Simulated scan of single mutants.
Amino acid sequence: MSRPHDPPRGFFPFGNPFRLLSLKSSALSPWLLSLLTGFELLLAERLKKLIPKNKDDILTLSWMKLAMESLCETHENINTLITDLHLPVSDWEEKWVDVYLDISVKLLDLCNAFSSELTRLNQGDLYLKCFLHNLQSGSDQKKYLQSRSSLDSWRQHVNANNARIETCREVLDSLAKSLTLPNVKSSAKGKVLMRAFYGVKVQTVYICSVFTAAWSDSTNDLFDLHVSEKPLWAKVFTDTQSVVNGEVRDLLSSGRSTILKELERVDASVEKIYPMIQDGVDDTVEAETFKDCVMELGTQAEKLSQGLDRLLEEVESFFKMTLSGRDVLLCNLRSSDLISGNVFGEDVG
């Protein structure tokens, strides 16, 4: 539906977002207000959960999993809202459909990039397993050399750049450049839908920017979004963004090799073990210390691998949800056009 010569567009770039957000009680029926209020309160609760009691939990894989679960729940809620509104696809303005499809393609691209990075990091576990296997099969100089080689390979692997993550910034920029809402004049249901979409897109862009910053180790990929004060989730979002961004920036400015907490713990264990292998273990005390360090590495590596697997599952769930939403919309559009006697994609004049 977009024409090749049209300029790049972000989320619903159809005017001033704050115009729609000045909804008054008299503009909507009690039923529509109830639907919108329920949606926004759920979103506020979800965002509040992203502020942990201990800020050190931010950017753990369990926190990232919670963030992705939160995003999936919000997208499920918007699908439920669309159903509750009884707003047939045939009643959607063409520009809404056009932009929805454009957004969903970008979300699929982000999911693919995130999945590739999680898979890449988890592949590093093979080097750690090889390291542990070499030590278990002997402790002579040859085994130490093989073990050191495995740790070197692990370091190179996890510190390598992922070209797909590097493209995320461009995708996010295109989405965040115009966080606006269309000016819906004739449809009360359309106003509710677009205001709800505003919350969805703000949460989506922000969480994806945090993930990208975590994997690129760059504050340039971390967004500070300015949102309207009107939605019921606005204050919670601003608080969440402030806390999370503050912690991410502190981590990035600390000079750490990585800001992902589980990965950092594995890296710390590797840093302890590496000089021991290089210099050799001479006496009983050193041998006992070395054994404890190796056990700790095995434990932390297992936690990292499990955390990456769980987060990957959530990212894949979000991918499937986005893809399913596109399929349903396209099928409904085809059905609507066939019922009206038009072929999908044909100019109906």
Rank of each mutant, 00 (worst) to 15 (best):
P8M: 12
P8S: 08
F11N: 09
N16A: 08
L20S: 11
L23K: 09
K24M: 11
A27D: 15
W31Y: 14
L50E: 04
K55W: 06
L66F: 02
T74G: 05
T74S: 10
P88S: 13
D91G: 04
W92I: 03
W92D: 02
V97Y: 06
V97N: 02
S116H: 12
E117R: 15
L118F: 15
N122V: 04
K129N: 14
C130Y: 05
H133S: 12
G138L: 08
L145H: 13
Q146F: 12
N159F: 15
N161Y: 08
C168F: 09
R169D: 10
S186C: 06
V200W: 02
V200G: 01
C208D: 03
S216M: 10
D217W: 07
T219C: 05
E229K: 12
E229R: 13
K230H: 10
W233G: 00
A234K: 05
S242H: 13
R249G: 00
E262M: 06
S269W: 04
E271A: 15
Y274L: 13
Q278M: 09
M295E: 14
K303D: 08
L304N: 01
L308E: 00
E313P: 01
S317E: 11
S317Q: 13
L338N: 05
G341S: 08
G341C: 06
N342F: 07
F344R: 08
F344G: 00
G349Q: 08
